[in-house]
Design a protein around this nucleic acid. Structure first.
Length: 274
DNA sequence: CCAGCCCCCTGTCGGC
DNA sequence: TGCCGACAGGGGGCTG
């Protein structure tokens, strides 16, 4: 599921119900989900800490506690929601971690494919030091974007999805940003013009902001914490629109593989470069 | 440096 | 209808 817009939507949806709550304990039934520290230490350190704030870095959810930060990555199929302790939920079948809170409330982490991970750390900066700039912050300057591309020869789409280059862009919003900039996804980075680079720097942010505005894309399992679907998918130009007419020129959208990922583009609006 | 392939999992969908 | 492979929004790791 979740790229930056979906993660941002989850953070916004959880904030009100979590801030000020005290975590009393945790339960898990799939140890690999607990990345670090080991489950026993994780539970012991977590217990008693109050939630101070919620945030996001790239695709990571940050739940700031009194002494640590609870960090959650949803990977492909993770979902988070808050319920009463005895309340049933449609996604409970795949719940692998429950955080028990005061007031009889629970934060549940449901994850069908079990790729998601939780971390507890007192040094978030170090844990996430591998991430590139936040594309919606002032750190993401055109200069830094251009510098990161210098000397590279890989396909631009694969670079957009590299988290050490830009944090938060995944398969969907890479395709959408490239369409908006009129750049073929397989274009080698060293063939991009100054104009391409400037356009892409802009359209990455536009595509992500559109995703946030529409509260994320519900294609498969993704739901907002309140259980509702996001609507971002209804506004895609290319992702998931194979053989449908391009919204700009009417040409059928094509699908190909770039960096082992399904990649959607308009052959007319995003011509191949040589 | 990078393409290509493997892995981690479970569910769904299309073709035969 | 049933089976089987391909594929799915992520990311880590290995080889050549």
């Amino acid at each position: 599921m979740p790229e930056l817009p979906e993660v941002e939507t989850v953070v916004r949806g959880l904030s009100e119900s979590l801030i000020g709550r005290r975590i009393e304990g945790m339960w898990q039934d799939w140890a690999p989900t607990i990345h670090s520290p080991a489950p026993d230490e994780f539970a012991a350190r977590l217990a008693g800490q109050q939630v101070r704030a919620l945030g996001r870095r790239g695709k990571y959810i940050l739940i700031a506690l009194e002494h640590d930060t609870l960090v959650i990555h949803l990977k492909m199929s993770g979902r988070l929601y808050v319920t009463d302790a005895d309340e049933e939920h449609e996604a409970d079948r795949w719940v692998h971690v429950r955080f028990e809170m005061d007031g009889g409330r629970q934060l549940r982490f449901s994850d069908l494919r079990k790729f998601g991970r939780v971390y507890l750390t007192d040094d978030v900066e170090r844990l996430l030091s591998h991430l590139g700039p936040e594309p919606l912050s002032d750190d993401f300057t055109l200069g830094r974007f251009r510098d990161g591309m210098r000397g590279r020869k890989r396909a631009i789409k694969s670079l957009l999805m590299a988290q050490e280059f830009i944090a938060g862009v995944g398969n969907i919003y890479a395709d959408e940003a490239l369409f908006r900039a009129g750049i073929h996804p397989a274009t080698r980075v060293d063939l991009l013009t100054e104009g391409d680079t400037a356009a892409l720097h802009q359209t990455i942010r536009e595509a992500l902001l559109a995703g946030i505005k529409h509260e994320g894309a519900s294609i498969g399992w993704y739901r907002k914490p309140d259980g509702d679907k996001g609507n971002s998918q209804d506004h895609f130009y290319v992702y998931g629109r194979t053989n449908l007419p391009c919204r700009h020129c009417g040409t059928a959208i094509n699908k190909m593989r770039v960096a082992q990922r399904g990649t959607h583009f308009c052959p007319q609006c995003q011509p191949e470069r040589v």
